[in-house]
Design a protein around this nucleic acid. Structure first.
Lengths: 346, 346
DNA sequence: TTGTATGCGTTATCAG
DNA sequence: CTGATAACGCATACAA
C-alpha cells in the first residue's frame, strides 16, 4: 500500500494524499478525511526508506560500542535507545569488539545506511580518520566514554583522571602505600610501556590520575604498580600471584573495570586472601556482582545510562544545527564506599 | 558522490558504473578499471537506502527485546549481532520494557523501516496480532526465549518446562520437600492466579514444570509455593519474610531470573540465613554475580548467545525462502551445580 | 486548496 | 559488452 494507492482509493491526487499522510502542507477537511479513511481501510504503512531518500534525513542513528554484552555498554545503550526514541530516532547498534578494523567497518556500514549521526566509543584515540571523515561529510559524531584530542567533536566521558587520583588518595589516607592498578589494556611487557601511547583515552586518563597521585605521595616507581594484560582468568591469576609476592607488600588494588574486578576478587578469594583485612579493593563500575560479595565491593560509579542520554542530547543538538565549539562533557564518577576498603595491614 | 558522478568521471554510462560498483552484470576490464579508479579517487560510498529502495531488500533486521540492560538479553543480542553481521545483515535493536504497547510501537517502527525480518521476545503470548500482521505482510518473524501457540512461526527457547522439573527433582532428591518458586511475574494476589493466563511463555513453562514435579512428589498445594511480584528490593524483602515464616518450613528456593536471584540472595544474607545450610538456592541464568558469592550459586545455564545465533539462522533460512513448517527450537538449559544446594535441614 | 512534474540514488530491463 | 530509460515510494517546487 503506497501513497499512490491511497490517493486513487480516496479520489485525490498523489500529492494531496502524501500531504495528509506525511502530516505536512495543507489539505481540506474533506480531503483529509477521505485519505485517512482510505489509509485506514487499506492498512497503509509509510515507507521510511522512501521518505528518507526523498528528504535526505534518515531518522536513524548509529552506535558503535566495544561490547554490548558488557554491562557498562549495555546500560549506556539503554540510555541511548530511550533518549533517541523519545526524540523519534531509531538506533542501529554495532560492536567493535574493541578492534579498530571492526570499528572502521561498522562506521562504514552505518554511513552507507545514511545514519543521521554517530555515537562511538573509539578503540584508539590516535586512529580516528574514519570518524573525521564522517564529520567532514556532515554526519555529526559524539564519542562515548572516550575522547580524542585529534578529533574536534563532542564527547561524553567519565571524570576518569580526577577519580583515579581521588580513589588512590582515599586508599593512601587509609595508610596504603603500595597500591596496584590492574587493567585489561594489553601491552607487550605486562607493565606500562612508556614508548607505546595508550589508545583508549579513558584508560590513559585513569592511569595518569593514578600515577600523578602516586607521585604526589612520593611512591617510588609507580609505573611498576600498573599491571596490564588482565584479559582473562589465567592472566589475572598470574597477576595476582605476582602482586601477592611483592615486597614491600601491595595492600590495595584498583580494577579498571568490573570484569577485571570480578576476576581479581575470585583469584584473591581462591588464594585465601580476605578483604579488606589482607587487601583493599576498588573496582570501576557498579556491577551487580559487587553487592553480593562478602564484603561488598567499593566501586567507582559510572552512570553510563546518563552517558548515553547526554550523548544523544549532544547529537540532537548538532542535528538541529548547533555549530558551537565541541563540548567535552565530563560526568562525575563518585566512589561508592561499601566494605572492601580497610586500613592498610601492618 | 553518486553512481552518476562516478560514471561521468570515468567516461562511461551510469548503467555501466552501477554494474561495476554494484558488482552485478558485465563490464569490460577497461571499463571496470576506469570506474573503480574514479570511485576510489572521488571517495564513492554506496547509498544503501537507495539500494534498498530499488531492490526491495533492506539488509536490516529488527530486534525487540524486553530489556537490553539485562545480561540475559544483551548476551542474546550479541549473538544476534555477530551472526547477522557475518551474513551481511545489520541489526536495529529496540526495548519493549516488557510492555505490550511499546512492543507494538517498536514492531511498527521497524516495519516502516522495511526490515527484512524480525526477532522478538513477545511480552504476551496471547497478544500477537502485530506479529501475525508482519508475518502476513511477508516479513518473517522468529520469537526469542518465548513462543506463542497462537503464532505459527519459528521460535528459539530454553527447555524451561523440563529444566524446572529437573531442578526441583534435584532438590527433592536432596531431601527438600517444600521448595518455593519466586518470579518477577506480576499478579494481583502475589500468588498464582488460576484465572489469569500467564503471558510470557517461558514463565508459564517453568511454573508448569515446577508444579508438575511438585505434584509428582505429592507436595500439597504447590501453587501456594509460587511467589509472584518479585519486582524490586522491597517486594523481595516481603517475599523472603513470608517464606521464612512458613510452617512447615521452606528449605529451597528457585529464582526465575538472575535479577530475582541476586535480590533473594541479598535479602537472605541480610537476615542471617546461611546458604546452603539453612536454605538452598538455584537461580536461572549464569550471571556474573553467581560466581563471587559464598557459596557460589548453582544456576540454570541459559546459553542466550546461542539463542540469538539460532534465531538469526532461522530468520536467514526464511529470508532465503524456506517455507517448511514452523520450528520450535528447544535449547537445553543445564543445571550448573556450584555450592548453593545442600541437604534439607532437619 | 489541489494537482503536475521532478528528483532522491539505486537497480534492472531491454535495445543497440 | 554498453547505454538509455523506467521504476522504487515519497517529498516538494511550482502551477493551476
Amino acid at each position: 500500500m503506497t501513497v499512490a494507492d491511497i490517493a486513487t482509493a480516496a479520489n485525490v491526487s498523489k500529492a494531496t494524499a502524501a500531504r495528509v499522510l506525511g502530516g505536512y502542507g495543507l489539505a481540506s477537511e474533506a480531503a483529509r478525511k477521505a485519505v485517512l479513511e482510505a489509509a485506514d481501510r487499506l492498512g497503509y504503512q509509510p515507507n521510511d526508506l522512501a521518505r528518507s531518500m526523498s528528504t535526505g534525513r534518515s531518522g536513524l542513528i548509529g552506535v558503535v560500542v566495544g561490547d554490548i554484552e558488557n554491562a557498562f555498554f549495555s546500560l549506556a545503550v539503554r540510555g541511548i535507545s530511550d533518549t533517541a526514541r523519545a526524540a523519534g530516532l531509531n538506533v542501529i547498534i554495532c560492536n567493535s569488539s574493541e578492534k579498530l578494523a571492526e570499528e572502521r567497518e561498522m562506521v562504514s556500514v552505518l554511513l552507507r545506511q545514511r545514519v543521521a549521526g554517530l555515537i562511538v566509543a573509539p578503540t584508539d584515540a590516535a586512529r580516528i580518520e574514519h570518524l573525521q571523515a564522517a564529520l567532514d561529510s556532515g554526519v555529526p559524531v559524539v564519542t562515548l566514554d572516550r575522547s580524542s584530542p585529534a578529533l574536534a567533536t563532542d564527547s561524553v566521558c567519565g571524570d576518569d583522571r580526577a577519580t583515579a587520583s581521588a580513589v588512590l588518595q582515599r586508599l593512601q589516607a587509609a595508610g596504603h602505600r603500595r597500591v596496584a592498578y590492574v587493567t585489561a589494556m594489553t601491552s607487550r611487557s605486562g607493565r606500562l610501556d612508556p614508548a607505546a601511547p595508550i589508545g583508549i583515552s579513558a584508560v590513559r586518563a585513569r592511569i595518569e590520575g593514578f600515577l600523578s597521585a602516586s607521585a604526589a605521595a612520593d611512591v617510588a616507581e609507580p609505573q611498576k604498580l600498573v599491571f596490564t594484560n588482565a584479559t582473562d582468568d589465567a592472566s589475572i591469576a598470574g597477576i595476582v600471584d605476582k602482586i601477592l609476592s611483592q615486597a614491600p607488600r601491595i595492600t590495595g588494588l584498583l580494577a579498571s573495570d568490573s570484569l577485571v574486578g570480578a576476576r581479581l576478587f575470585r583469584a584473591l578469594t581462591a588464594r585465601g586472601v580476605t578483604l579488606p583485612r589482607d587487601m583493599s579493593l576498588v573496582s570501576w563500575f557498579d556491577a551487580d556482582w559487587t553487592r553480593v560479595t562478602s564484603p561488598p565491593i567499593s566501586v567507582v560509579e559510572q552512570p553510563t545510562y546518563l552517558f548515553g542520554q547526554r550523548a544523544v542530547e549532544r547529537l540532537i543538538a548538532r542535528l538541529k544545527g548547533d555549530t558551537s565549539a565541541p563540548q567535552q562533557l565530563l560526568i562525575p564518577t563518585p566512589l561508592i564506599e561499601r566494605g572492601s576498603i580497610g586500613p592498610a595491614p601492618a
